[in-house]
Design a binder for these strands. Sequence first.
DNA 1: TCTAATTGCGTAATTAATTACGCAAATTTA
DNA 2: TAAATTTGCGTAATTAATTACGCAATTAGA
Lengths: 317, 317
Amino acid sequence: MDFFERTGKMAIGSRLRVLTETLTRDAASIYGLYGVGIKPKWFPVFYSLTDEQPKSVTAIAKEIGQSHPSVSTIVKEMIKAELIMEVDGKADRRCTLITLTESGKSLSQELIALLRDVERAVEQISSECDNDLWAAIADWEKALGRTSILERVREIKARREHSEVQIVEFQPQYKKAFYELNRKWIELYWELEPHDIEVLENPEKHILDKGGHIFVALYNGFPVGVCALCPMPEESAYDFELAKLAVNNSIQRKGIGRRLCDAVIDKARELGGEMLFLESNTRLKPAIALYRKLGFKELPEYHPAYARGDIQMELTL
Amino acid sequence: MDFFERTGKMAIGSRLRVLTETLTRDAASIYGLYGVGIKPKWFPVFYSLTDEQPKSVTAIAKEIGQSHPSVSTIVKEMIKAELIMEVDGKADRRCTLITLTESGKSLSQELIALLRDVERAVEQISSECDNDLWAAIADWEKALGRTSILERVREIKARREHSEVQIVEFQPQYKKAFYELNRKWIELYWELEPHDIEVLENPEKHILDKGGHIFVALYNGFPVGVCALCPMPEESAYDFELAKLAVNNSIQRKGIGRRLCDAVIDKARELGGEMLFLESNTRLKPAIALYRKLGFKELPEYHPAYARGDIQMELTL
DNA sequence: TCTAATTGCGTAATTAATTACGCAAATTTA
DNA sequence: TAAATTTGCGTAATTAATTACGCAATTAGA
């Protein structure tokens, strides 16, 4: 299949399925060729019983790597075909112990020639191939047993996204981004107020010059998120406030908010802060969830400072 | 799966199916991880359309190696999801040309990162494996494209069975087998007559000493079939008669009858015969079919010589 | 040019697997 | 020892593929 050379490895499942389908169809014909009344899907169950030890449905399922309802159905079919039968195991009355019947045993004798011929055919195919499919499958099973492909992809994605996003300190060229990113989310729920505009237009005056910090998240060099660490008034119980968190909502699920907050918290610690404060609104569910995850605790009483606030939180650094 | 190391290669289909199932399940989760609204089974169809060329259902099916009803169903689902749409091809009104919608195209952009990450994950797995699964699948596809596993097995079986069966000339130790093999099939339909017994008990006198030959088929050294070449009377239009063909019916479908007849015909030619005669009964359908396949033609009129006969045939050597 | 064969593709039925769920038996725990 | 949890396994529903079949459009052939 030339096609799969173009798709890349994402399609390995589909490609395997096509190959499996071909092999299963041929397997059915091969059983016919030898006059063996057995379906391809029966084979693993049948084979697992050829060691003549009675086994339970679940035990067979585990051994052959299929689900137990699948084995249960196959067992029912094979009992009807009189190849296997139930025996009393006495011990555990939940189990139905299964074993080969006499005709099942004689079938396993007949199968010997078939298995040998198939083995030869596969050897013939292998000799025409540079790569050993059988061994490759075993390798993959082992590798996937250690770490699934899903986990691997998850990790690779996280690593890539981490490297795509850079957290830097505020610089004049990000002034517009600081304004716009905040304006956008505020306007989603409320309206910009004169006070907002004053602060957002003059971050140097209101934040940086007072000893605060602003962090900017760059996604491939482009500013997509901001967050500020603002010193609190002397008389306050808190050293700093986490404020003006804003992330471009077209770049979601990359942990940008999290990394901005981390930067703010780290800086607060670096500056010797002991308690960090924030004020938000419970309508901003993802933000509140993030704050909670970072360890912020909700203050029992709310003393409004902003028009938009309805929740205050604190974090012991 | 340790299990499959014990089953031998017959279970390669089952083993692949288990692996495929695992990979497909993970694929679904991976799409979820990237917020891509696509099912694993859609992927081949989707990918085949990313070259931006409108394609018909059958063309896609052929390209991705699946049946057209399968593609037809997937197409219906993907149209509903607004990833693809039908376009007018003008040319052939049987075809429904399919192409990506705008949202389908933008999805294909989003997929780029996903595909790259998966590619990396597969590379990571490959680096842990001694054998290259991807290349091995390609090798197998190529090898099976040349000759299917079914054809290979068929050939191996024929070769093995041929070597298991040996055709030898009569020897005294096969006298009992000559009698018994003939007795058995005759008694299936008729009864042994005194004339039968006389000939079967004294093959030397009635066949060999008159210049005839008897061939014995040995299956793993054990006699399982016989056939005789008997000279015809001087006044007859025929040189020889093929007679006393009998094969143990528990060893079927191995071409033993065929090989006995071949030996008889070869010997008749060797002895300078020009016309070979035989007499049989139409109830013996497999035998008549074999004679026809060997080139025997039915004589238009029947002049009985045996009580059991109802058909006579001849072969020009 | 008309008929027969082929091609495209949709629907229905079938197959082989899976998950979801529930009941009964056994085991663990408090 | 009684209650809660776990285990075994069967049934039902779902999923993703397949073959079978039939209709309409096109192409080949006489």
